[in-house]
Amino acid sequence: MSKINVLFLCIDDKKNDEEPSYFFNEIGDGIVLERVVETFNPIKSEANFRFVVSSFQEKKLIETIFPKDEVVQIAPKTKGSAVSALLGSATLKKDEELLIVSVNEILNIDIQKVVSNFRKLSSDSGVISFDSLSPKYSHILLKDSKKIQGFFQYKVVSELATAGLFYFRTVEDFIDSASSFLLKGTSLNGYFYVGTVINEYILQNKVVNRFHIERKSYIPLKSTLDFINTNVNRNEGL
């Protein structure tokens, strides 16, 4: 049976390499990375989990926490998540599905339902959306209230914000589209993001769909305040 690859991008642009990355921070009764991975455990039997890191110390630590999964070390300080994802997915089987996951957020969703929905719609790619007008999130613009017209990194063009989880029907299509996107040099302040690869799919007339979730199902961990609020909510029984 063909596997679905779950690529966890454990990349932190911290200035001090001696400090532990944010995804090792405690949250509730565990650490952030454990909570992120929990969402994907329901598809573990059909999945290949791969963690992408940029330091040897973090590679060894994640290997200790998840001894049965793959950990790939790439060069530090790449030019954005699209580059990190390309490096991390290069040796995956090209005809298998791919989920690319940011570890700076927690999704309380039924991942089996999400994947099944994208498959049912014969999606070449898919995004997770939720309602928000905050500029700290990326957004999508719809055409005729249905078809995704464009993905906008950290730009409010609608009330539909996006989570850092992206579905791709095949590893090969992602690599081809991401490579094409990089060659065009379309960056944001010199950085290339996984989300904006979606625009390359749209230009190629590929099928891009979205799965909408409730705002409360998305827990961002992008700042110290996010961590404080999340821990308070968990203590209240979130």
Score class of each variant (00 low, 15 high):
198 I>S: 09
201 Y>C: 07
164 G>S: 11
202 I>T: 06
178 A>Q: 01
139 H>C: 11
139 H>R: 11
166 F>S: 10
179 S>C: 01
136 K>M: 13
188 L>I: 04
140 I>V: 15
158 S>F: 12
201 Y>Q: 09
142 L>E: 10
195 G>Y: 06
200 E>Q: 15
192 F>N: 00
199 N>H: 10
158 S>I: 09
190 G>V: 02
184 K>M: 02
195 G>P: 04
168 F>R: 03
138 S>K: 09
143 K>C: 09
139 H>G: 09
197 V>Y: 09
167 Y>K: 03
146 K>R: 14
173 D>Y: 07
155 K>I: 02
146 K>M: 13
163 A>L: 07
143 K>M: 11
204 Q>P: 01
159 E>D: 13
155 K>Q: 15
157 V>Y: 10
142 L>I: 09
196 T>Y: 02
166 F>I: 06
179 S>K: 07
158 S>H: 12
141 L>E: 15
191 Y>C: 01
146 K>F: 15
170 T>R: 05
152 F>D: 02
193 Y>A: 05
163 A>E: 04
169 R>C: 09
158 S>V: 10
167 Y>Q: 06
198 I>G: 07
192 F>C: 00
154 Y>G: 00
153 Q>A: 04
195 G>W: 05
153 Q>K: 12
171 V>W: 07
165 L>Q: 06
171 V>L: 06
181 F>H: 10
146 K>A: 13
